[in-house]
Protein backbone atom coordinates (compact mmCIF):
# COMPACT_ATOMS: atom_id res chain seq x y z
CA UNK A 1 0.00 0.00 0.00
CA UNK A 2 1.49 3.33 -1.04
CA UNK A 3 -0.81 5.43 1.10
CA UNK A 4 0.85 8.37 2.94
CA UNK A 5 1.39 7.57 6.61
CA UNK A 6 -1.02 10.17 8.01
CA UNK A 7 -3.79 8.91 5.70
CA UNK A 8 -3.69 5.32 6.92
CA UNK A 9 -6.64 4.24 9.00
CA UNK A 10 -4.46 2.78 11.75
CA UNK A 11 -3.04 6.26 12.43
CA UNK A 12 -6.47 7.76 13.11
CA UNK A 13 -6.90 8.02 16.86
CA UNK A 14 -10.68 8.39 16.91
CA UNK A 15 -11.22 5.37 14.67
CA UNK A 16 -8.84 3.27 16.75
CA UNK A 17 -10.47 4.15 20.05
CA UNK A 18 -14.01 3.81 18.73
CA UNK A 19 -13.29 0.46 17.07
CA UNK A 20 -11.52 -0.93 20.12
CA UNK A 21 -14.33 0.02 22.48
CA UNK A 22 -17.00 -1.42 20.13
CA UNK A 23 -15.28 -4.72 19.35
CA UNK A 24 -16.02 -6.59 22.61
CA UNK A 25 -19.71 -5.89 22.08
CA UNK A 26 -19.51 -7.26 18.51
CA UNK A 27 -18.25 -10.59 19.75
CA UNK A 28 -20.52 -10.67 22.79
CA UNK A 29 -23.51 -9.91 20.57
CA UNK A 30 -22.47 -12.65 18.15
CA UNK A 31 -22.37 -15.16 21.00
CA UNK A 32 -25.72 -13.89 22.28
CA UNK A 33 -27.30 -14.31 18.84
CA UNK A 34 -25.78 -17.80 18.61
CA UNK A 35 -26.90 -19.18 21.95
CA UNK A 36 -30.15 -17.26 22.14
CA UNK A 37 -31.16 -18.46 18.67
CA UNK A 38 -33.74 -20.87 20.09
CA UNK A 39 -35.58 -18.11 21.90
CA UNK A 40 -35.09 -14.95 19.89
CA UNK A 41 -34.20 -13.95 16.37
CA UNK A 42 -30.93 -15.20 15.02
CA UNK A 43 -28.93 -18.37 14.85
CA UNK A 44 -25.70 -19.74 13.48
CA UNK A 45 -25.61 -17.81 10.22
CA UNK A 46 -26.39 -14.43 11.79
CA UNK A 47 -23.93 -15.02 14.63
CA UNK A 48 -21.29 -16.05 12.12
CA UNK A 49 -21.58 -12.92 10.00
CA UNK A 50 -21.60 -10.66 13.07
CA UNK A 51 -18.47 -12.41 14.36
CA UNK A 52 -16.78 -12.06 10.97
CA UNK A 53 -17.83 -8.40 10.75
CA UNK A 54 -16.00 -7.84 14.05
CA UNK A 55 -12.81 -9.35 12.68
CA UNK A 56 -13.19 -7.39 9.44
CA UNK A 57 -13.58 -4.14 11.40
CA UNK A 58 -10.44 -4.95 13.38
CA UNK A 59 -8.53 -5.72 10.20
CA UNK A 60 -9.80 -2.54 8.56
CA UNK A 61 -8.64 -0.25 11.36
CA UNK A 62 -5.50 -1.98 12.61
CA UNK A 63 -4.30 -3.61 9.41
CA UNK A 64 -4.61 -7.12 8.06
CA UNK A 65 -1.41 -8.29 9.79
CA UNK A 66 -2.83 -7.37 13.21
CA UNK A 67 -6.05 -9.26 12.48
CA UNK A 68 -4.11 -12.31 11.33
CA UNK A 69 -2.03 -12.18 14.51
CA UNK A 70 -5.26 -12.53 16.52
CA UNK A 71 -6.98 -15.07 14.24
CA UNK A 72 -4.34 -16.75 12.06
CA UNK A 73 -5.32 -17.62 8.52
CA UNK A 74 -4.75 -21.33 9.04
CA UNK A 75 -7.43 -21.35 11.79
CA UNK A 76 -10.12 -20.01 9.51
CA UNK A 77 -8.98 -22.26 6.66
CA UNK A 78 -9.54 -25.25 8.93
CA UNK A 79 -12.66 -23.68 10.47
CA UNK A 80 -14.58 -23.59 7.19
CA UNK A 81 -14.23 -27.35 6.78
CA UNK A 82 -14.70 -28.14 10.48
CA UNK A 83 -18.08 -26.38 10.50
CA UNK A 84 -19.40 -28.56 7.67
CA UNK A 85 -17.94 -31.62 9.41
CA UNK A 86 -19.70 -30.72 12.69
CA UNK A 87 -23.02 -30.61 10.87
CA UNK A 88 -22.41 -33.79 8.88
CA UNK A 89 -21.02 -35.46 12.01
CA UNK A 90 -24.20 -34.66 13.93
CA UNK A 91 -26.06 -36.61 11.27
CA UNK A 92 -23.71 -39.58 11.70
CA UNK A 93 -24.14 -39.30 15.47
CA UNK A 94 -27.92 -39.51 15.20
CA UNK A 95 -27.49 -42.64 13.05
CA UNK A 96 -25.20 -44.11 15.70
CA UNK A 97 -27.94 -43.40 18.26
CA UNK A 98 -30.37 -45.49 16.26
CA UNK A 99 -32.15 -42.79 14.30
CA UNK A 100 -32.11 -41.66 10.70
CA UNK A 101 -29.71 -39.05 9.34
CA UNK A 102 -30.22 -35.76 11.26
CA UNK A 103 -33.04 -37.24 13.36
CA UNK A 104 -32.04 -35.28 16.46
CA UNK A 105 -34.78 -36.71 18.66
CA UNK A 106 -32.81 -39.93 19.04
CA UNK A 107 -29.78 -38.18 20.58
CA UNK A 108 -31.36 -38.40 24.02
CA UNK A 109 -33.06 -41.80 24.27
CA UNK A 110 -35.16 -40.77 27.27
CA UNK A 111 -36.25 -37.36 26.15
CA UNK A 112 -37.16 -36.54 22.54
CA UNK A 113 -37.26 -32.77 23.11
CA UNK A 114 -33.82 -32.70 24.77
CA UNK A 115 -32.41 -34.66 21.86
CA UNK A 116 -33.84 -32.12 19.43
CA UNK A 117 -32.35 -29.24 21.42
CA UNK A 118 -28.96 -30.95 21.49
CA UNK A 119 -29.00 -31.62 17.75
CA UNK A 120 -30.06 -28.09 16.87
CA UNK A 121 -27.34 -26.66 19.13
CA UNK A 122 -24.66 -28.71 17.37
CA UNK A 123 -25.76 -27.94 13.82
CA UNK A 124 -26.03 -24.23 14.66
CA UNK A 125 -22.48 -24.44 15.99
CA UNK A 126 -21.45 -25.95 12.67
CA UNK A 127 -23.07 -23.09 10.75
CA UNK A 128 -21.39 -20.50 13.01
CA UNK A 129 -18.02 -22.12 12.41
CA UNK A 130 -18.35 -22.31 8.62
CA UNK A 131 -19.87 -18.86 8.12
CA UNK A 132 -17.58 -16.95 10.49
CA UNK A 133 -14.46 -18.66 9.12
CA UNK A 134 -15.60 -18.39 5.53
CA UNK A 135 -16.34 -14.65 5.67
CA UNK A 136 -13.08 -13.97 7.50
CA UNK A 137 -11.08 -16.05 5.03
CA UNK A 138 -12.59 -14.26 2.02
CA UNK A 139 -11.70 -10.92 3.68
CA UNK A 140 -8.13 -12.09 4.36
CA UNK A 141 -7.70 -13.25 0.78
CA UNK A 142 -9.10 -10.04 -0.71
CA UNK A 143 -7.29 -7.65 1.60
CA UNK A 144 -4.03 -9.57 1.70
CA UNK A 145 -3.59 -9.41 -2.04
CA UNK A 146 -1.12 -6.68 -2.90
CA UNK A 147 -0.98 -5.02 -6.28
Amino acid sequence: MNVPKHMRMREKLILRVAAKSLLPFFFLFALYVQFHGDFGPGGGFQAGVIFAAGIVLYGLIYGIEAAQAVIPRIWVEIGVAVGVLIWGGTGIWTMQSGGRYLEYGKLDPEHFVHGQHLGIMFVELGVLCTVASGMTLIFYLFAGRGR
Partner: peptide
Protein backbone atom coordinates in the same frame (compact mmCIF):
# COMPACT_ATOMS: atom_id res chain seq x y z
CA UNK B 1 -40.32 -26.00 23.33
CA UNK B 2 -38.41 -23.73 20.95
CA UNK B 3 -40.09 -20.32 20.81
CA UNK B 4 -38.28 -19.22 17.64
CA UNK B 5 -40.09 -21.00 14.81
CA UNK B 6 -37.42 -19.93 12.31
CA UNK B 7 -34.81 -21.96 14.17
CA UNK B 8 -37.04 -25.04 14.28
CA UNK B 9 -37.81 -24.84 10.58
CA UNK B 10 -34.21 -24.21 9.54
CA UNK B 11 -32.42 -26.67 11.76
CA UNK B 12 -34.95 -29.43 12.32
CA UNK B 13 -37.72 -29.48 9.67
CA UNK B 14 -35.34 -28.51 6.88
CA UNK B 15 -32.10 -29.91 8.27
CA UNK B 16 -30.96 -31.28 4.91
CA UNK B 17 -31.72 -27.98 3.24
CA UNK B 18 -29.69 -25.94 5.68
CA UNK B 19 -26.89 -28.52 5.59
CA UNK B 20 -26.83 -27.91 1.86
CA UNK B 21 -26.62 -24.16 2.49
CA UNK B 22 -23.58 -24.61 4.73
CA UNK B 23 -22.06 -26.65 1.93
CA UNK B 24 -22.77 -23.82 -0.50
CA UNK B 25 -20.85 -21.42 1.77
CA UNK B 26 -18.04 -23.98 1.97
Amino acid sequence: EIPNVVTTVLASYRGYDTFGESFVVF
